[in-house]
Design a protein around this nucleic acid. Structure first.
Lengths: 338, 338
DNA sequence: AATATTAATGCAATCGTTTGCGGGAATGTT
DNA sequence: AACATTCCCGCAAACGATTGCATTAATATT
């Protein structure tokens, strides 16, 4: 049973394919009468336009690509959800690629994007991608494909990007702790090769600086892999007398809470905790944690809308944007004497 | 700067497009000399085959669709990861749709699949999809598109499906508790309109039955939404004297651990716990939980390989398969006197 | 040397849809 | 009545790649 095509409809109705095509897309040239006649038999025969053929002829693909480095429990799921929710209201479809933080896989994903002639690429780069090995991103520009970096971005390039205002978010979080009298704050950060890590560390430092307080650089912990915290944190917490912890992501927060539980330390009685969080984990976890919201879902929506906007403004300047963040309060912060 | 096409190469090398095409795909008709000549200039000019055009001509799309009802922290992320990992080794690309457990969105997703002429659809249906409203799935069959249900499947249809052996997995989990002397076991299950829920409940019951033990039906808890547990569980646990808990998913386990923490009940001293789990959460959470592994990543891989196998065997029978499960031991189960 | 065989390439149609252009019939205008 | 418009529709090319078949040139066979 072959697929019904416009030709079939044309033959069946003694019309030309052009008339069928125009009738189906409500072209004013076609009379009301034949228009409904065409549409009815199209429906009756279960005709569906072949998007592959349509986009091929129209010289665009109707495809948007989402490239992500990895998928864990946090952030990326809600980002995917946001992208999917937003794309459903557009004529585009989403193709997905995962790079496993492997730059070679990232190159291949981008090759596929070019071959597919996707109209836009939303990419969160691998942990190893930087200014000096991003030739594959340049290929996108050469191929005239819009590229928008989100979350894990490479700063100071002429590719547009979309992230939260990481620096300010971190500062806000630390400010909360400082305002509650905390001075010995352990800052837990991800891999420093990530720009967002560096930005959030900057915010951490800035909070101390603007408060006119000294910062012990040993109080900044960088963990390349969150699971390493299970080794580091018990030692660190027993050798020091931190009164509070700030984590730059949900994943780090998760491992932090695990370790506090293991060490029989409770929040906020033994330690106050603030995090930058997507909000999903923090809104379900007990005890509730005060967090600076970095909603993956919102980011997903924003990224999708932005890339479509960029596609529709091929000439205009495409600036990088920083999304603002809000504090979501809970009881994970206790006041202490400064 | 237009995209380089085969025509461009042909003109440039004074060859026909057919020769270019064949040279690029190593057709034996083409001499070694011109073959390398073509490939070199193709590389030099940064030529990339237009997949849209190729697949259009070849009458297949090179697209596989993944349809999922929702994306939460658990299971689906690792399923997506598994699918992505496996598809990377194939010539296919992945398009994704999310239905938000809305059957209308599911219909639209399937419409898109047909329009795109995807070659296979991997679908976990919405909570509302059942034998009597699955007409949209029949459309796939009419369109000659392979369809494979996974995880949330509709049983007793002639669509092939892939799930774990839910009944056996649940039985295994409960057996562990029974063997450790537990008799008052709280079974926590998801929405009973899901086939996997019903299967797992069957397994729960079967464990008691085969052990020749009575089962109090009140000990089976069905929660439509996991977050509702925050209201139900405290009451249930204070009105009863359960010695252990079995949860059928990670999400239910997560809310369970939350509530135990809130109630100051510890695992396994106050309550033993066993779950069916993807393994990601359970391998990072403290305290560790003994679980029956239902790895989303493995499922993702299996689903992808299965649908490709089905595509390549259009005529053959396509049976539904049940994946086996293994127990992963931890210290979340304490022996009690029966 | 005539014929058969093989090797290398080109011709042209094709996939399903869109679209610029042109044309005939009906209607409107003077 | 002659002309200009408007309305509806068809013709045919095009998008980029693939492929059955034809064609030419080179080589082998007798």
């Amino acid at each position: 049973m072959r697929r019904i095509t416009i030709k079939d409809l044309a033959a069946m109705l003694n019309l030309s394919t052009s008339t069928i095509s125009r009738a189906l897309s409500d072209h004013p040239d076609i009379s009301e009468a034949t228009r409904t006649r065409v549409k009815e038999t199209a429906k009756r025969l279960n005709y569906r336009t072949n998007l592959q053929a349509r986009f091929f002829r129209k010289k665009h693909s109707g495809l948007l690509a989402l490239i992500l480095p990895e998928i864990n429990m946090f952030y990326n799921p809600s980002l995917i959800e946001g992208v999917n929710a937003a794309i459903a209201e557009t004529p585009y479809s989403l193709v997905m690629f995962q790079t496993n933080n492997n730059i070679q896989q990232e190159r291949e994903a981008i090759e596929q994007c070019i071959r597919w002639a996707v109209e836009g690429v939303m990419i969160s780069v691998t942990i190893n991608t930087n200014k000096h090995n991003m030739g594959h991103l340049e290929e996108l520009r050469l191929a005239n494909i819009e590229c928008l970096m989100y979350d894990r971005v490479i700063p100071d390039t002429d590719f547009p990007s979309l992230t939260i205002d990481s620096q300010l978010a971190a500062k806000k979080g630390v400010d909360i702790l400082l305002e509650h009298g905390h001075r010995k704050i352990l800052g837990i950060f991800a891999n420093p090769s990530l720009a967002i890590t560096r930005e959030r560390i900057k915010g951490f430092k800035k909070a101390f600086q603007e408060a006119g307080l000294p910062l012990n650089p040993d109080h900044i912990l960088n963990v390349a892999q969150a699971s390493l915290m299970d080794n580091i944190l018990p030692v660190l917490l027993s050798n020091n007398t931190f009164s509070s912890i700030f984590t730059m992501t949900d994943e780090l927060l998760f491992f932090t809470t695990n370790n506090l539980r293991k060490l029989n330390l409770s929040i906020p009685d033994d330690l106050s905790v603030v995090a930058i969080s997507d909000g999903i984990f923090t809104n379900h976890y007990y005890p509730r944690i005060t967090y600076i919201e970095d909603s993956g879902k919102r980011m997903g929506r924003a990224v999708l809308h932005q890339i479509i906007a960029n596609i529709n403004n091929p000439s205009k300047e495409k600036p990088s944007r920083l999304l603002p963040t809000e504090i979501v309060w809970s009881n994970s912060v206790k006041s202490v004497n400064a």
